[in-house]
Simulated scan of single mutants.
Amino acid sequence: MPAAASASTRRAIRTATAAEGDHSPLFMGSLAKCFQVLEALNTAGRAVGLTELAQLASLDRSGVQRITHTLRVLGYLRQDPATKAFRLSGRMLEFGHTVLATDQLRERAQPHLEALNRRTSETVNLMELEGDEIVYVARYPSLHAVSVDLHVGSRLPAFCTAAGRAILSCMEPADALARLKAARRTAMTRHTVTDLAGLRAALGEAREQGYALNNQEAFIGDVSVAAPLLDPRGHPLGAVNIAVPTPRWRLEDVLARLVPQLLKTAAAINREVRHL
Rank of each mutant, 00 (worst) to 15 (best):
M171D: 11
D175S: 13
C160I: 11
A166S: 13
A201K: 12
R184T: 11
G198H: 09
A166L: 10
P157R: 03
A202Y: 02
A162P: 01
P173F: 10
R179S: 08
L150H: 07
D175K: 07
V152R: 08
A182Q: 12
A163V: 05
R165K: 15
A183G: 06
A158L: 11
M171S: 03
A212N: 05
E208A: 15
V193M: 13
E208W: 08
A201C: 11
E208Y: 10
S154T: 15
S169E: 03
H151I: 01
G153P: 05
D149S: 14
V193H: 11
R184N: 13
R185P: 01
S154Y: 13
L168N: 03
A182K: 10
A158W: 03
L168G: 00
L180I: 11
S154E: 08
R165Y: 04
A163T: 01
D149R: 14
L196Y: 13
L199Q: 06
A187Q: 04
C170P: 00
A212Q: 02
A202V: 00
L156R: 06
A183F: 09
R200Y: 01
R184Y: 00
L180K: 07
H151P: 00
F159H: 08
A174C: 04
D195P: 00
G204W: 07
S154Q: 05
R200T: 14
G210W: 07
M171G: 04
T189E: 06
A158F: 07
M188W: 13
A202R: 12
A174Q: 15
A206R: 05
E208F: 09
Y211K: 07
C170A: 14
S154C: 13
T161S: 15
A183H: 09
A197P: 00
G153H: 07
T186S: 11
A197I: 09
P173V: 09
C160L: 09
C170Q: 15
A212T: 03
D175Y: 00
L150M: 12
A183T: 00
D149F: 10
C160S: 14
S154V: 06
Y211G: 07
R190W: 04
T192G: 01
E205G: 02
A162E: 07
Q209M: 11
R190T: 13
R200H: 13
V193R: 13
A158I: 03
L196F: 11
C160Y: 01
C160V: 14
L180A: 04
G164E: 04
G153K: 12
H191Y: 14
A212G: 08
T194H: 05
A183N: 02
L156P: 01
L168P: 00
R185T: 01
E172M: 10
L177V: 11
A176I: 08
R190V: 12
L168H: 08
P173L: 11
G164M: 08
T194R: 04
S169Q: 02
C170N: 14
R184L: 10
A212D: 06
G210F: 10
R179V: 01
A182H: 07
M171I: 02
L177G: 01
A182I: 02
A197S: 13
A212Y: 01
C160R: 02
G164A: 09
R179G: 04
D195K: 00
R184I: 02
A158G: 15
A201P: 00
L156W: 06
L196R: 03
E172T: 06
A206H: 06
K181T: 10
P173N: 12
A176W: 06
P173C: 13
R190K: 11
S169C: 09
S154G: 12
L168V: 01
K181L: 14
L196N: 06
C170W: 05
D149E: 14
T189F: 09
